[in-house]
Design a protein around this nucleic acid. Sequence first.
DNA 1: TCTGGGGTCCTAGGACCC
DNA 2: TCTGGGGTCCTAGGACCC
Length: 426
Amino acid sequence: MKAIVDCNSFYCSCERLFRPELAKRPVVVLSNNDGCIVSRSDEAKSLGIEMAGPYFMAKRVIEDNGVAVFSSNYTLYGDLSMRVMDTLREIAGKDAVEVYSVDEAFVDLSIIPEEELYETAKYIKDMVEMWTGISVSIGVAPTKTLAKLANYIAKKNKEASGCVTVLATPEQQREALQQTRVNNLWGVGGAYARKIYDMGITNGWELATMSEAWAHRFLGGVVGVRLIKELRGEEAVDMKEELVEKRMIATTRMFGSTVTDINDIKEAVATYTSRAAEKLRRQHSAARVISVFVVTGEQDYSLGFNRGGTISKQATLPVATSKTQELIKPAVALVDELYKRGTEYKKAGVMLSGLVTDTSIQGNIFLSETKNCERRLMDTIDNVNFSQRDDMLKFAASGTDRDWKMRQEKRSPRYTTRWDELFEVS
DNA sequence: TCTGGGGTCCTAGGACCC
DNA sequence: TCTGGGGTCCTAGGACCC
């Protein structure tokens, strides 16, 4: 059996941890640029505030009901996430935990007898709450997909479930599937849900009884077959061994306001490249391919995000590198190729791919002394920026005034990671 | 007149997730 | 006025090879 441990309204819970007076007040957290609502407390949900809805459209409800609003504070959430994951590893053992996202982890419970699953899950929940102050919901079942379903059910009625649901027997699984619409299943998104409804299938149980051949034909080949198997209790999505390195690294942002000047775009792209290069070095990789994209003018939000005019260009480097200078140069050159005078730009991004292990990491005796120096320069920059302020040291190409910088007006202090923002007890 | 049957690698794009 | 920012996996199709 497997458990999925999922933090309740994670970002909101993080904010409340340091503002206990908000415990009963509705809370929401906004995306970058203060654009969308990405986390809602239960009280905010019951006010009808939509997940991923635009902030400006919910503003009225928010003001009328005294909802507390925060810009996202990823430094804080990242640190608390680490504490939650460390707690799980402490309880279940390092190898039994697979971190799935910032607020979720799968835990292998195969050594626990069936009749003790509920108590075990409850224990995990209590310990996480006691050690980190973050409340979680837990779903337990034979496969990842069914565990996600169990968790969905636990969250739907927290009072009745105590935030823990176990679907250990085929009967329990069947009942759960029957009462769940297909669009709420893990692995069924908007496109598949529509397709499935059109074929007259509405609940999870009906889907689980379809043939694998049918799934292969209509639900994306092997992906659909895996989904059907998982729903029947047959493991098809494995636990991953220790976190693998990323195969692609991206840094992209909307601009705070529309930008037309090529130099602003170059500064933004240089800044994003620096960020991406830091991520690259953190996982000891080097990149062979760099691509830059820009998004112009109006986007059609009826079709979802980022469907508007995206143009991109990529360059393949002669040698894979993790050095900021060597990445900024081609990135800026790509902007020259993409840029059109008189166009309004809303967003830009940098993607690094073709990742390989960085061989320049420990000074290499076959490399010239200058190469080793550059490597040490990167380490120094990363250290200063990590321990002091995010962009205390940066390349001149990143600019200094930043008209294009994103909005972030309501961010809370980084209580746990910055000396000058520590939580104070009086 | 008539022109195989594999393989690999790469890219673009679609679907999904949080 | 005002709508994140990351990621993953898979498939199809084209180029090229023998």
